[in-house]
């Protein structure tokens, strides 16, 4: 009876319940940790891993300054080119123009339908197939002459090969993103007098980004690893080429140098995953009813000053 009286004036005490036990989680954790320890112990004591070679080459200048740098450049350049081409292809596929539509379809059909390794080898052979480039009137005079065989550009061909292949996949990702934006959005933009291009740029694509970014992050990581195939061009100065072809072949130590390559691939992938997190957060703005940290701060401030509805704040 007295309890009832006190509780009416004070807030009820916080619930202090006994938490639900999960004994099997503990069992599973113990088993997995035991297996992990066994594996690590085995790896550490197994001579075949040659950890001293791994340590010796992990921060090797040739691995970092040539291999890592080239792999990063290949990834970034080909991905940027692939995204630009992908946007163009996606827009072409969605346009009303039948010529654009069919050109984009054929492009996708070819570049998605053949293996990337085959394409890379093919691009490597381009200087053999087309030894010169001439610009002029067909069967008429030539204004411009370019000798492909005179220069060696496996690096450029590698980027081109990777980008053209990737753009076919990016086009499909971007098309899916564009299609995910409700029709009312482009209708509202049209009704405001926006042109088709402006509607795409200002209304549709920014909203499509939310759908486009997660799979694109996937593609960047996948591209990072696909760069190890540029050996088909042949371009051999990437991370995998330097570690496995150059150093491992010289030292007869394939296992520790593969681990060196794997280590650096994992490091870059981890950095990319962090970048993706922030990009996703940026493009998710407005998608949730939850107030942003900034908005909460403004509201808290208004509450603090005691001004009801504290509107009319300056720009």
């Amino acid at each position: 009876m007295t309890d009832v009286d006190t509780s009416s004036s004070t807030a009820p005490a916080a619930i202090d319940a006994v938490p639900l036990r999960h004994p099997w989680r503990w069992v599973a954790a113990v088993v997995i940790i035991a297996l992990l320890v066994l594996f690590l112990y085995g790896a550490a004591t197994n001579e075949a891993y040659k950890w001293h070679v791994f340590r010796q080459y992990l921060f090797n200048e040739r691995v970092l300054a040539v291999g890592l740098v080239n792999t990063l450049q290949l990834t970034v350049y080909s991905m940027v080119l692939a995204i630009v081409l992908g946007v163009i292809l996606a827009v072409m596929r969605l346009s009303d123009n039948p010529i654009f539509k069919s050109v984009a379809w054929v492009y996708l059909w070819i570049f998605r339908g053949t293996p990337v390794y085959v394409q890379l080898v093919f691009w490597g052979l381009i200087p053999v197939i087309y030894s010169t480039i001439q610009l002029g009137v067909p069967f008429g005079p030539s204004f411009f002459h370019f000798d492909l065989q005179a220069i060696s550009f496996p690096f450029v061909l590698a980027i081109l090969g990777l980008a053209l292949n990737e753009s076919a996949y990016m086009a499909e990702i971007i098309r899916a993103g564009i299609s995910s934006v409700p029709e009312g959005q482009s209708e509202a933009s049209t009704a405001l007098g926006m042109s088709w291009g402006m509607t795409m740029r200002r209304t549709v694509l920014p909203q499509a980004m939310r759908v486009i970014i997660p799979p694109t992050g996937n593609e960047v990581i996948s591209m990072l690893k696909t760069t190890s195939l540029v050996t088909g061009v042949p371009f051999t100065l990437d991370l995998y080429g330097i570690t496995s072809r150059e150093i491992a072949a010289r030292e007869f130590e394939p296992v520790p140098l593969l681990l060196v390559a794997a280590f650096w691939y994992l490091v870059i992938t981890s950095i990319l995953m962090v970048g993706q997190y922030y990009l996703e957060r940026y493009y998710a703005r407005g998608a949730s009813r939850k107030l942003t940290t900034k908005q909460l701060e403004v509201l808290a401030k208004a509450q603090g000053t005691g001004a009801p509805g504290g509107g009319g704040e300056g720009a």
Binding site: Q185, E187, A191, P206, R285
Partner: peptide, 14 residues
């Protein structure tokens, strides 16, 4: 010509 829609169609990212 201004137009107002049944489902508002405000730009959600702005």
């Amino acid at each position: 010509i201004g137009m107002v829609f049944q489902h508002f169609n405000l730009f959600p990212h702005r």
